[in-house]
Computed example of a mutant assay.
Amino acid sequence: MSADPGSRRVIDFLVQNFNLVRGLHILAVIAWMAGMLMLPRIFVYHMSAEPGSRMDAVFKQAELRILRIIINPAMILATVFGGLLILADSAIRGWGFLLQPWMLTKIAALIFLFGWHGFMAGARRKFANDQNTRSEKFWRMTNELPFIAAIIIVLSVTTKFLNH
């Protein structure tokens, strides 16, 4: 059974513009990572603000904006462009690449990033409601987790574990 002509045109467009889609995916990931690295650092600084103070309100507003204006849209765009890359890749080399160790590693790191994203969104709500239970040390220690996941993803994709 073959794909309908409209779907085939979309896939052909994606294959022909693979580098453009990949570039847009990378830009979205950069924005997502920037926000994911910024938010826990803001949490660290927020912890020194007196609850109910002007600074407390400023941090709450900054946290909300970072999540809603940077992190969430960038994650959505990174996911959409990533999905389009998977479609294009499947047309180029079949669906088998999804089961390659490098891709399974990327997927595992992505699952972590999605979970961490959700965890930080929940933490932001706790800060907004003056119910943060985490320490400044916790936020300092976990601040770089998204970057570690990004390193794993980039190296797994770019090296494919040197298994060409």
Results as ranks from 00 to 15, higher is better:
residue 52 G to V: 01
residue 33 M to T: 12
residue 161 F to S: 10
residue 21 V to G: 01
residue 54 R to K: 12
residue 144 E to G: 09
residue 48 S to C: 02
residue 10 V to M: 13
residue 44 V to Q: 01
residue 83 G to I: 03
residue 75 M to P: 03
residue 73 P to V: 06
residue 32 W to K: 04
residue 134 R to I: 00
residue 41 R to H: 10
residue 42 I to Y: 12
residue 62 A to L: 14
residue 87 L to H: 06
residue 116 W to H: 13
residue 147 F to P: 00
residue 139 W to A: 00
residue 1 M to H: 12
residue 60 K to N: 13
residue 84 L to C: 05
residue 70 I to Y: 08
residue 48 S to P: 03
residue 164 H to W: 15
residue 137 K to C: 01
residue 100 Q to E: 15
residue 70 I to D: 04
residue 95 W to K: 12
residue 42 I to H: 10
residue 8 R to E: 14
residue 140 R to N: 10
residue 163 N to S: 14
residue 38 M to K: 12
residue 148 I to L: 14
residue 135 S to V: 01
residue 72 N to G: 02
residue 102 W to N: 05
residue 50 E to C: 00
residue 127 F to N: 00
residue 118 G to K: 10
residue 118 G to P: 03
residue 78 A to D: 01
residue 118 G to E: 07
residue 92 I to P: 04
residue 100 Q to I: 03
residue 35 G to T: 01
residue 17 N to E: 08
residue 24 L to G: 07
residue 40 P to A: 05
residue 162 L to M: 11
residue 10 V to F: 12
residue 82 G to N: 07
residue 66 I to G: 04
residue 100 Q to G: 09
residue 17 N to M: 07
residue 116 W to T: 04
residue 92 I to D: 07
residue 162 L to T: 07
residue 83 G to R: 08
residue 32 W to V: 02
residue 8 R to I: 09
residue 51 P to M: 06
residue 121 A to W: 09
residue 101 P to E: 01
residue 60 K to G: 07
residue 100 Q to A: 15
residue 49 A to G: 08
residue 39 L to M: 14
residue 123 A to I: 09
residue 9 R to K: 15
residue 141 M to N: 13
residue 135 S to Y: 02
residue 145 L to C: 02
residue 69 I to Q: 12
residue 8 R to H: 04
residue 64 L to S: 13
residue 72 N to S: 11
residue 34 A to Q: 05
residue 139 W to G: 00
residue 14 L to K: 09
residue 143 N to T: 13
residue 3 A to F: 12
residue 33 M to C: 06
residue 5 P to M: 08
residue 78 A to I: 01
residue 81 F to Y: 14
residue 152 I to N: 05
residue 25 H to Y: 05
residue 135 S to I: 03
residue 10 V to G: 04
residue 13 F to V: 00
residue 26 I to N: 02
residue 31 A to C: 13
residue 128 A to E: 13
residue 72 N to D: 10
residue 16 Q to A: 15
residue 94 G to H: 08
residue 21 V to N: 04
residue 92 I to Q: 14
residue 2 S to E: 14
residue 116 W to A: 06
residue 20 L to F: 14
residue 94 G to K: 08
residue 64 L to I: 06
residue 74 A to H: 03
residue 17 N to Q: 11
residue 33 M to R: 02
residue 126 K to L: 13
residue 142 T to L: 05
